[in-house]
């Protein structure tokens, strides 16, 4: 039984961070209607920023959160403004041009990282790396727990922003009915730019939080893009509440898979759930909760 709870706890802790990744993706999907296939690669960039800040300036990864998030916000703003929005003007044979562009951005970011940092595996070893504490017989990884608490705080701040500020409401309104939002005076182009920036900043926070736990290399982005995609589909496209549940579900599923099936099948369990959701619950958890 202890093993079960231990597995559950690890799953929830990592799931909280997955939720951050998923919420960024789902916001972008809601407002622009596109899948951002550069999502994990944006996280990789944030991880390198955190790595550099730690290695050269001895900045604690949790503090460099406040460096990586604004950096990625502006990177996201620039990507949307100069690379994605111009594509909306062009009349195209295939409407998914923006999605293809995100694939290109992903490749470029990965190769730039490889050019600068080479493919060597890097890690950040902090004083709390590998430390655990016990609560009721269950061990908690310190770094994971702190990361989870950050994730919860950021999620609360994000929801406050989306529900209580005019800008947040404008983002939700644009996702629900773009033309009506324009009639209400919402500058939809500006909203797409801010949303992409916000999505990038959220996944950046996940990157900074994960760096004490994960090895860093240029290709780390791709599996996280997949995870973000799975979470978004699990939660229901465009649903932020769904992304939280999607993130937790994926975290727990991977953790259970690692314990009961085998470490190397971890990723597979997540993807099997993904397939089951697509077959039996298209529309994701959003279909059940209606939010």
């Amino acid at each position: 039984m202890t093993v079960f709870f231990q597995t559950l706890v690890s799953g929830i802790l990592i799931g909280g961070i997955y939720a951050l990744i998923g919420m960024g993706m789902t916001l972008i999907m809601g407002v622009m209607g596109i899948i951002n296939l550069a999502h994990g690669q944006l996280m990789m960039v944030a991880m390198y920023i955190t790595f550099v800040a730690y290695t050269f300036f001895h900045l604690d990864p949790y503090l460099s959160l406040f460096v990586a998030m604004p950096c990625l916000f502006f990177l996201g703003v620039a990507i949307q403004k100069f690379l994605l929005n111009p594509l909306m003007e062009v009349e195209t044979i295939i409407p998914q041009n923006q999605v293809l562009m995100t694939v290109g951005i992903a490749i470029v970011l990965t190769e730039i990282a490889r050019f600068i940092f080479s493919s060597t595996y890097r890690s950040v070893t902090t004083s709390y790396t590998g430390k655990v504490f016990f609560l009721g017989g269950i061990s908690f990884n310190v770094a994971m727990t702190v990361a989870f608490l950050f994730a919860v705080t950021l999620t609360i701040v994000l929801f406050w922003f989306l529900l209580k500020t005019d800008l947040g409401r404008s983002i939700r309104a644009t996702a629900q009915d773009k033309e009506a939002a324009i009639l209400m005076g919402v500058n939809s182009r500006r909203i797409t730019i801010i949303t992409y920036g916000l999505g990038a900043a959220l996944v950046a926070s996940a990157g900074s939080l994960l760096i004490p736990i994960f090895y860093l290399f240029p290709d780390i982005g791709r599996p996280f893009t997949t995870k973000a995609f799975v979470i978004t589909i699990l939660g229901g496209m465009g649903s932020t509440v769904g992304a939280i549940f999607g993130g937790l579900t994926l975290g727990i599923a991977e953790s259970m898979g690692a314990t009961y099936i085998g470490m190397s099948y971890k990723e597979m369990v997540g993807l099997i759930i993904f397939l089951l959701v697509l077959i039996f619950l298209p529309g994701g958890l959003k279909r059940l909760t209606k939010v």
Partner: peptide
């Protein structure tokens, strides 16, 4: 063309 996933009050605020 309301915002269906917003409350009456939020729609008015918009």
């Amino acid at each position: 063309r309301l915002f269906p996933e917003m409350t009456v009050r939020e729609n008015l605020i918009m």
